[in-house]
Amino acid sequence: MTEAQTMTALPALSLARRELVRFYRQKARIIGSLGTPIVLWALLGSGLQAAFPAMPGATASISYLKYFFPGNLVLTVLFTSIFTNISVIEDRNEGFLQGVLVAPVSQLGLVLGKVSGGALIALIQGIFFLSLAPLAGFSLSLISLFQVVLAVAVTSLCLTTLGFIFAWRLDSIQGFHSIMNLFLMPMWLLSGAFFPAHRAPWFLKLVIYLNPLTYGFSAIQVALKSENLSSSVLGYSSALGVELLFVAVLLLIAIRVVSDRKKG
């Protein structure tokens, strides 16, 4: 390994590991992150069951708990990915970040470390929620399970990087919450998780196609072999490919944002 690679890979691994260690040492975070998606799924799934037959994509053979499962999975990943970036603001406010900035760490190492750590936490949460898939009536082969996990991982990476770009520029957690809440629900609602893209008016369709979550959701939904496939915009590989393209573009933006700040 060259010195430049060491100064990217080693700090990145260390920063990512630190995110995970911090996560499992804060019991409240574990309880909240594992409990919230289950409660949301159970409440919304059961509560909306009565209204379900009138919804798009509804069929007589599917329960709303099952219908809502992929949407709830991306919602979980969305929230966790975005909000793990609170650690960026905490690190800055607590002084930890300045110690990283004066070390000879490459910008790529810093971004990859923070982002992959956050994405791993979102992935763990996603996998935990996915373990409930049989309860929703899904029976997954090993291959489709692998496909779902891969799609969740790429979606988490994409969303964490997006959150990182905002968090890096903000110095208050409240400000970050407000800004992200402005994006989060529209992103979820316009991802195909709530209503299918092809039925939306043209201006919403445009937003749906520009929304990174759309492709992550599509890939997850196809891999899960969910019944309401009509809301998927692309097939599995294409959706995953577009999502990876989003990851690459967002990573480049993140590196740019970090280097701006580094220059002071």
Binding site: E3, T6, M7, L10, P11, L13, S14, L15, R18, V21, R22, R25, Q26, E94, G95, F96, L97, Q98, G99, V100, V102, A103, P104, V105
Partner: peptide, 30 residues
């Protein structure tokens, strides 16, 4: 790489142990 920097506000991670904080710092410097 020549500089050791000690800030006025502590640049330690409260949730990590003493040893882990130093290991992490070592990794940042390769």
């Amino acid at each position: 790489s020549f500089l050791g920097v000690v800030f006025q506000a502590p640049a330690l991670d409260k949730k990590l142990t003493v040893e882990e904080n130093i290991y992490h710092q070592g990794h940042l410097y390769g």
